[in-house]
Design a protein around this nucleic acid. Sequence first.
DNA 1: CGAGGAATTGACACTATTCAAAAACTGTGG
DNA 2: CCACAGTTTTTGAATAGTGTCAATTCCTCG
Lengths: 211, 211
Amino acid sequence: MSKAELKKVSDTKITKFVKKGEAIFSEGEKLNGVYCVRDGVSKLSKLSPNGKDQIVKLATQGAVLGQRSVIAQETSNLSAVAVKDMEVCFIPKDIIEETLSSNPDFAVEVLRHMAHDLKEADDVIVNMSQKTVKQRVAEAFIYLRDNFGEDKEGYLSLTLSREDIANVVGTATESAIRIISDFKKLGLIKTSGKMIGIYDEKRLIEMAKGH
Amino acid sequence: MSKAELKKVSDTKITKFVKKGEAIFSEGEKLNGVYCVRDGVSKLSKLSPNGKDQIVKLATQGAVLGQRSVIAQETSNLSAVAVKDMEVCFIPKDIIEETLSSNPDFAVEVLRHMAHDLKEADDVIVNMSQKTVKQRVAEAFIYLRDNFGEDKEGYLSLTLSREDIANVVGTATESAIRIISDFKKLGLIKTSGKMIGIYDEKRLIEMAKGH
DNA sequence: CGAGGAATTGACACTATTCAAAAACTGTGG
DNA sequence: CCACAGTTTTTGAATAGTGTCAATTCCTCG
């Protein structure tokens, strides 16, 4: 973006704080702008017909929420709820649209970003359909560590409830719990309250591949 | 696109015919352009680590293949294979890139298109993770009819092998076969060779919702 | 300390994959 | 036109993987 555009954006942006558990927007809602994540983590989920919530993506610092819906000029197909206290800034739709149509570089940049998201979505589809729940749980832990890090004691920095883990993996909460319990018994992970830490990364990765 | 641009595209485009079963491009291949589907149908699939092919999308007339990879400047994450004799036209990467950066309207149009694909991918993720194989098979038949139509005898115009059906649904071939056989016994569908026709749409839709 | 939600566990029904074998179909060369 | 070889489609039976429901136990917060 040019300097003038950047200025316009920073003039109009509104910073918002969202507490863990609170929604930024919900499925079906009409969005009149996008939200940039400055801090914290949000889950993007979609309610399935059977009443369960499928988490499609976890978004953290640097991610932009609502982009897809604003560009497609549709209501949101996902809900965004904070899983860790957040600070987001809001950018009105008008600015996005205007910048898109006046600045090809910006459009291409957004395009690249969306192309990347699409590839990730394809990968998730393959994972969901071709891997067992056990493999997906193992994968989820690796993913959580790689994307959100771990504290000095080796526990994952992003702590999700067992239900959220199940919703990321796409399974029943009890199934996820049982597998976590198995992993612990096998010495692959350690737990402390709802916190989870990776013990034996190597074997966990093996597990994710199916062994 | 402007007239001049359109002309440039039609000057450089190369028409290609692809027979059923032949590949247009494969996973990991570097694409130096995109393919527009003028006729026929292609499956876009990704090989999973366990050796099975997951069909992510079926593309027909009007669809553009390879767009994502060209835009992201990456090798293709999917393979494209014809499931029905095809006619495609090739548009070199250079032209795409140039048009993207010079014509904001074109970029926005592509963006909208990709936003739509992304939403569809989200829906597929939810279906894969939250529905049973039986529901997904039922859904697949409805999808095939809605998108590819049926002949005068009521058989689906797009005939896929049982294996392809299983790969769309994300299950073992035998599982898909068994479910198809069940549906037939229940009077929901009829078959003739590998052709499949929908008998009782209403109950099939119920089935897709899970009853 | 008590209430209410979260996490865990057991038992059981149901779903789906796997391996093996039989039957049906397809194209080819005699 | 038929027989053969190679696929694809079907079916069976055994096994493994998941989901559901109900009952406890744990935790956390007011």
